[in-house]
Design a protein around this nucleic acid. Sequence first.
DNA 1: ATGGCCAATATGATTGGA
Length: 260
Amino acid sequence: MRVATWNVNSIKQRLDGVLAWLKEREPDVACLQETKCTDAAFPREAIEELGYNVAVHGQKAFNGVAVLSKLRLDEVTPRLPGDDEDDHARFLEVVVSSGSRALRIASIYLPNGNPPGTDKYSYKLRWMDRLHHYADTRMRLEEPLVLAGDYNVIPAPADVYDPAAWAGDALFLPHTRAKFGALLHLGLIEAVRATTDAEGIYTFWDYQAGAWQKNAGIRIDHVLLSPQAADRLIAVGIDKHVRGWEKPSDHVPVWIELEL
DNA sequence: ATGGCCAATATGATTGGA
């Protein structure tokens, strides 16, 4: 089973690219972030025509997550627990199944948090605490679990083209990285790092300053696996070439292949 | 050497992204 994540930066602007990529990569499940539209405005028909069930949790203009699945959706649960006042559409959990195969998957759009020292950064840290608590409860199920999305976290210097330039950024601050590390300490396995320690593997290149042309990227889109999922990990990939397409998102898809 | 973008909004300036 192939499970992918992609921050599309507006599903309406990216629909042609998303459809082309779905045909090319053929993920069984695709978690999308930054769909930037209401559920009513989500272009679900074009995606359903490719054989996907579509679950959305969006809002007007900002944020927004979705899960596309060729497998049946047994459960669909929007919103990260822990703060009823939080109205950002950043989290959507599903359970997919086909025959004896079942998998719990969450599409995650973790807050950016810039600039540090503001409410935005404290919101990011609180959101990470809530994610930690959610992940802890799910890990106790001891089931195959995939937490995939835009974490807005650069885990280590090897994951950024110019570490010094990002030293004070909310994506790379020690406090941010420590909370991401704490998630992994629950026993979650980060798919890319389970397979390689190579430097210079990126998932995001800014639209500005010729970042793509200079390969000045960062790695902030991650797939975290419970041990029961990681035991079945066959392959990990990043569809970097998609960044070179017409009207690209600033992020590219990351995918895993599980023997399920 | 430096800076360069993109998307959405009752839209032409502001906010948010990273």
